[in-house]
Amino acid sequence: EFTQISGYVNAFGSQRGSVLTVKVENDEGWTLVEEDFDRADYGSDPEFVAEVSSYLKRNGGIKDLTKVL
């Protein structure tokens, strides 16, 4: 089950073990991109978060400006 990723309007994530599946949706709710990120592939949590965040930004993730990150 996908849940909204904090700080984004149209990005959602689903966690299974160490694998986080993220997706970005358009205004109609269609999935634009979907990608798996395995936490085990990264040396640290900040590196993992930075990679996921960068992916979302590159692929149309819209920041939720009503929330302070």
Score class of each variant (00 low, 15 high):
I5R: 04
W30V: 14
S54V: 07
L65A: 09
L20W: 08
V33R: 07
G17S: 02
W30F: 13
D27C: 15
G7P: 07
S14D: 02
V24M: 02
K23Y: 08
V68N: 12
E35T: 12
N10P: 00
E28W: 11
T31W: 06
D45F: 13
S14Q: 10
A11G: 03
A40Q: 09
S6Q: 12
T21S: 07
S54H: 09
Y55L: 03
G7H: 05
R58N: 10
V19G: 00
I5D: 03
V33K: 07
S53L: 14
K23L: 06
E1K: 13
L65S: 10
F2T: 05
Q15H: 07
V24Q: 00
E25L: 15
S53R: 14
K57S: 13
E51T: 11
R16Y: 06
S14R: 15
V68Y: 11
R39Y: 06
G43P: 09
V22K: 00
R39K: 04
G13C: 15
Q4P: 12
N10I: 05
F2K: 06
V49S: 09
S53K: 13
T31F: 06
V33T: 08
I5N: 04
G43V: 08
Y55I: 02
E35M: 15
V52M: 03
G13T: 07
T31K: 06
D45N: 07
F48D: 01
S18D: 04
E35Y: 13
Q4S: 07
S44R: 01
V9G: 04
E34G: 04
E28N: 10
Y8L: 04
L56T: 00
N59E: 04
V49K: 09
E25I: 15
D64I: 09
S54K: 13
S53C: 15
D27R: 10
Y42S: 00
T31P: 07
S6E: 12
Q4T: 08
Q4C: 15
V24G: 00
D27V: 10
V24K: 01
S44P: 02
D64L: 08
N10G: 02
S44M: 01
L56D: 00
D36Q: 14
G17D: 03
T3L: 11
E35N: 10
S6C: 15
K63R: 12
P46C: 15
V22A: 01
S53E: 15
L69I: 14
S18L: 06
V52W: 09
G60S: 03
Q15V: 13
L56C: 06
S44C: 06
S44A: 03
P46K: 14
G17I: 04
S54M: 11
P46H: 14
S44Y: 02
D45Y: 14
K57Y: 10
D36F: 09
V52C: 06
R39W: 07
Y42T: 00
L56W: 00
K57Q: 13
T66V: 09
S53H: 14
D27F: 10
Q15L: 14
R58M: 10
R16H: 08
Q4M: 09
F12Y: 11
V9H: 08
S6Y: 14
R16D: 03
G17Y: 05
W30N: 11
G29S: 03
D36P: 05
T21L: 04
E47H: 05
F37E: 00
D27S: 13
E25P: 00
W30K: 13
V24Y: 02
L32P: 03
E34H: 08
N26V: 06
N59Y: 10
E35G: 08
D45W: 15
L69A: 14
E47F: 03
T31N: 04
K67Y: 14
E25W: 10
R16M: 05
F2I: 05
R39E: 03
V22W: 02
F2G: 05
K23N: 01
Y55G: 02
I62A: 04
N10T: 05
D41P: 02
V68S: 12
G7T: 04
T66S: 11
V33W: 14
N26D: 10
L20G: 01
D36Y: 10
P46N: 15
K23I: 09
K63V: 14
P46I: 14
S18P: 03
D27Q: 11
A50Y: 09
V9Y: 07
A50G: 06
D41M: 10
A50D: 09
L69E: 14
